[in-house]
Design a protein around this nucleic acid. Structure first.
Lengths: 132, 132
DNA sequence: CGATTTGACAAGAATCATTCTTGAATGATA
DNA sequence: TATCATTCAAGAATGATTCTTGTCAAATCG
């Protein structure tokens, strides 16, 4: 079931990588490398940070994980490869997904000859927890 | 003329800060701290990086400079405080401004109780130079 | 005027996420 | 089994940013 999906990545599936993949699968928490490292620590106490980064790099290249530039302090990763946007809490940096299609087109005279390939919208606000 | 504008910031205007302000004024190149440092080096060879960062911090607090999260490698700064968006070259990281108003509203059932305050759109593409 | 406080400065050390390097281990192939 | 490529762990290296310290100049106040 899930293995099928993983095999289609055409990367070598080691136990460490499977643990990372399984943590990421369906995960909407937009974890940082550290979050992932901690989550997999239980199963592989000897695993190093390098393995997390290497695996994320491999997944990025396959397009199955996206690197979010939302937080300057640390990179956040998103396993949802469908087109969507994000709503970020200014205080706690919590990120939720916005699955809505906005049809954003740019008039040619604004693009200075760029070949425009896509877009991403960040909504900012304060989440309900921080708003109390 | 310009001094008026600077004085309204209500921060102490030292020669170093004036040099930074004058470099930033009307600048649409979205410079990094290093770019700014290099640009002001000519006038103040003894200036340190800390002064650049301190000044940017002060300007950020006054809302007259925005920190862009577009580039993971280094922060980029934008002195244009009007509402606008960005078009970024995936290859050379060149950033141009998009002054266009998109009316983006989110249905309540998507916001999970967030108080939505604003948004920012990043368009991605390849600039004409990199496309040759 | 002096004295004192405030904030800015330069220099360099400290931090910390990320990347790189190395050598060992593993897996695939034939 | 021999070969070759890939992955792994461990820790060193990197580099942008932040922090610390002592110095200095401008502003305030008696």
């Amino acid at each position: 079931m899930m293995m099928e999906k993983y095999r289609n990545l055409h990367i070598k599936l080691t136990p460490q990588r499977l643990a990372i993949l399984s943590y990421l699968n369906g995960n909407t928490s937009h974890p940082s490398a550290e979050d992932i490292y901690k989550a997999v620590q239980g199963q592989f106490p000897t695993m190093s940070f390098a393995t997390v980064y290497n695996t994320l790099e491999a997944l990025k290249n396959k397009g199955s994980v996206q690197e979010l530039k939302i937080d300057h302090a640390k990179k956040r990763y998103d396993p949802d490869s469908t087109i969507h946007h994000h709503l970020i809490c200014n205080k706690c940096k919590n990120i939720i997904d916005i699955h809505k299609d906005f049809n954003l087109s740019l008039p040619d005279e604004m693009t200075e000859g760029f070949d425009v390939l896509g877009n991403s919208i960040e909504f900012y606000g304060i989440c309900s927890k921080c708003n109390k």
